[in-house]
Design a protein around this nucleic acid. Sequence first.
DNA 1: ATACTTAATGCAACCAAGTTGCATTTACGG
DNA 2: CCGTAAATGCAACTTGGTTGCATTAAGTAT
Lengths: 127, 127
Amino acid sequence: MPRRQTKSQTIILNLLQQEQAALSHDGITAKLEKELDRVTIYRILNRFVEDGLAHRIIADDGRQYFAICPKECAHDHKAHGHLHFRCVSCDRVECVPGEVGYNLPKGYRVDNHNIILSGNCNACSKK
Amino acid sequence: MPRRQTKSQTIILNLLQQEQAALSHDGITAKLEKELDRVTIYRILNRFVEDGLAHRIIADDGRQYFAICPKECAHDHKAHGHLHFRCVSCDRVECVPGEVGYNLPKGYRVDNHNIILSGNCNACSKK
DNA sequence: ATACTTAATGCAACCAAGTTGCATTTACGG
DNA sequence: CCGTAAATGCAACTTGGTTGCATTAAGTAT
Ligand SMILES: [Mn+2]
Ligand SMILES: [Mn+2]
Ligand SMILES: [Zn+2]
Ligand SMILES: [Zn+2]
């Protein structure tokens, strides 16, 4: 009944944690040397999210990105309240640590945050 | 060459502006009495966004929602910086006026904001 | 080491949301 | 009232992700 530790899983886990950016399914496939099945990758990622090991971001390009926050990050992986930035030039999505301030009408209960700004990242905006 | 004012367009425009919530394609179809073609609806909505008449939100359910901000809203429809809330119970997406505070590393240029929180709205959380 | 149980994988089929091509309709300026 | 081209409708396509099911292989018990 408990989770099992498989080769594919650790590969993807390593990928995610040594990557500072959030990765999409494609992004992961691209970085993979040993080819893994599409579905397997999706299932592994979903499991990571389910287990609170990583978090999922729905970007404004409509795709899912997955990230493991650095330990500096104050938020847990559920309802993580920080910001994300997607560079439309280099197509990288990154977690931006720090608080986001807003106010909501009374009575609203927030379960999940999906905050994503897009534009040009530092590197790309200077060229 | 300029835009033409058609029946279908005005219907959808009216729908959007008398609706306080943001509407998805489905949401619109549901509210429509005279049936319109799927594609036509999408094209009309895309035109609205293109013309800065409405704005598009990519929600955390992966779907597109469209809204016309009330005139109180400080933002224009391009790069509108306000917050959105999606209630997972009643499935409504609403624009939440007000500023969102955050800080980004130096050199980042923001073109577009897609900020969406989800959970239970006021109505739904009290039952 | 061996056998057993069931989680994880791979492949095919499926699904949902949105877009594209193209022939037809229709708004609107002349 | 005509002519031009914007807007529509229908079919086909695309992209991103999920589901069903048989097969493989972790982890545990023997
Ligand atoms: Mn993040
Ligand atoms: Mn809005
Ligand atoms: Zn960049
Ligand atoms: Zn609600």
